[in-house]
Structure formats: structure tokens, C-alpha cells
């Protein structure tokens, strides 16, 4: 199927590293997710970071900050 449609166009054979993310556990709070994702950071800072890196959850959603099981939650800033 792929070869028939795009065949010789495929050149890249390795997966480049991408920004790391987690998905929320059922009923997981922001604090619990922040502690899980950034265990070495003070909790308040970790929460602040998760919020700042995930606008789609904490700025654009109604109700704001509602985490869904399908969410992609970034646990690091964009890669350079």
C-alpha cells in the first residue's frame, strides 16, 4: 500500500527525538501528574511548568484545566 502510493519517496528511516509527553491517568489531578512527570522539581514549580507548557489544557479549554484521558501533556519545553 505505502510503496504503491509513495514508493521511492520515502527517505527518512529513523525517528528523530520529539518533545516528551504523558497522558493523564484516570481522575489524576494536575498536582499528581506534575509530581509524576517532574519528580525532582518543587511541586509548585512543577505545576507552574506543566500549566505553561500545555496551553491547550490550561488556557484554551472550558472548563479551564480539565484534564482528559485523551490529552497529550508535555513534560518538557519545546526542543531546540
Amino acid at each position: 500500500m505505502n510503496a504503491r502510493l509513495i514508493g521511492a519517496s520515502i527517505k527518512r528511516m529513523t525517528l528523530a527525538r520529539q518533545r516528551r509527553f504523558v497522558t493523564p491517568h484516570p481522575d489524576e489531578t494536575l498536582e499528581a501528574l506534575a509530581a509524576r512527570a517532574l519528580p525532582d522539581a518543587p511541586l509548585a514549580d512543577a505545576v507552574d511548568q506543566i500549566r505553561a507548557w500545555n496551553l491547550h489544557i490550561f488556557a484554551m479549554r472550558k472548563p479551564r484545566g480539565l484534564m482528559l484521558g485523551s490529552d497529550v501533556v508535555f513534560v518538557e519545553p519545546p526542543l531546540t
Partner: peptide
Amino acid sequence: MSAAAALSCSPTGLDDAV
């Protein structure tokens, strides 16, 4: 970059985005 390394990218240990 690991999450811990990411947190060390500013003097405050946080990602000070502007």
C-alpha cells in the same frame, strides 16, 4: 533533553518563557 535537564535551563531552574 530529560525533564530534569529541561528544568535546569534557566537560573531559577524553570523554563522562563516570554
